[in-house]
Simulated scan of single mutants.
Amino acid sequence: MRKISNKIKVIAFDADDTLWVNETYFRDAEHQFAKLLSKYETENKIDQELFRIEIKNLGQYGYGIKGFILSMVECALELSNYQVKQKTIEAILTIGKEMLAKPIELLDGVEEVLHSLQGKYKLIVATKGDLLDQERKLEKSNLLKYFHHIEVMSDKKEKDYQKLIQHLDIHASELLMIGNSLKSDVLPLVAIGASAFHIPFHTTWAHEEVSKVSQSKFKYETVSNIKQVLSYL
């Protein structure tokens, strides 16, 4: 087992699907959406069109449930040739509101790990998404007491992490990131000289998937449960 550098001063945690369940709710919502529009297209085609529209809208709406709701509405209009009924639009909005109201389901071992690391390192959250929604989830999670800083990022590319490192006034080698997405939480960090742990979640949004070639270029640790991180520190 390779021990993580003793230079680490700050440990950053992704939020969705690292601290608590999130992507599962999007898969459920996509299924409900496809049922609402089943008279217009097959579920597979609806999924493809919704994904296309989501990606097209990322630059305007960013990440999160609110952008997802707007993309569902746009998709419904397009697939129905603008004939979709008002009640269907209302049902789409209800899907989104139900997602926003979901309880926070912490993943196994999260609080145990945060409690163990608190005081030894500066702990922060570095996550994407809608600011209001992420603040709500953090509040409901009862985890705020463990974190020194919360950073809700518009994106998670190398330049975004470099800005975070500058804000924290540390060197890249002093940062460890823990997250479920190779594309957002691992590869950009390793590329700029930080350390990273990959904790795969059982479902991943297609936009976050990366090729095996991209993965093979970088060195990082993969664990199946966040509690395993402790043995590396």
Rank of each mutant, 00 (worst) to 15 (best):
M1I: 08
R2S: 07
K3M: 07
K3F: 03
S5G: 10
N6E: 14
I8F: 00
K9S: 06
K9W: 01
D14I: 04
T18M: 05
V21Y: 10
V21Q: 11
Y25E: 08
A29Q: 05
E30Y: 03
Q32M: 10
L37Q: 01
S38N: 10
K39Q: 14
K39W: 06
E41W: 08
N44H: 11
I46P: 00
D47K: 15
Q48W: 11
R52K: 15
E54Q: 13
E54W: 06
K56C: 07
L58V: 12
G59C: 08
G67V: 06
S71Y: 07
V73W: 01
A76C: 11
S80A: 06
Q83M: 15
V84F: 02
V84G: 00
Q86G: 15
K87L: 03
T88N: 00
I89V: 15
E90S: 10
I92A: 04
L93C: 12
L93F: 09
T94Q: 09
I95V: 13
G96E: 04
G96C: 13
E98M: 13
E98T: 14
E98R: 15
M99I: 15
I104P: 03
E105L: 15
D108V: 06
V110C: 09
V113W: 05
V113A: 08
V113F: 05
H115F: 14
H115D: 14
S116C: 12
S116E: 11
S116D: 10
L117Y: 05
Q118W: 01
Q118V: 08
K120C: 10
K120T: 13
Y121A: 04
K122R: 14
V125S: 03
A126W: 01
G129F: 01
G129C: 04
D130V: 10
L138A: 04
S141N: 11
S141I: 09
L143N: 00
L144D: 14
Y146R: 00
F147Q: 00
I150P: 01
E151D: 14
M153W: 08
S154P: 06
D155C: 11
K156V: 02
K157D: 09
K157W: 04
K157F: 10
E158A: 10
E158T: 14
E158M: 12
K159S: 09
L164C: 02
I165M: 03
Q166P: 00
H167E: 11
L168R: 00
D169Q: 13
H171M: 09
A172M: 06
S173T: 13
E174L: 03
L175V: 03
I178T: 04
G179L: 02
G179E: 01
S181Q: 06
L182C: 06
S184Y: 03
L187S: 05
L187R: 04
L187E: 02
P188L: 09
L189Y: 01
L189M: 12
A191P: 05
A194F: 01
I199W: 03
F201Q: 03
T204C: 07
T204G: 06
W205L: 13
A206P: 14
V210T: 06
V210H: 02
K212C: 07
V213E: 15
Q215S: 08
Q215L: 07
F218Q: 04
T222E: 09
V223R: 08
V229W: 01
S231E: 13
Y232I: 02
Y232V: 00
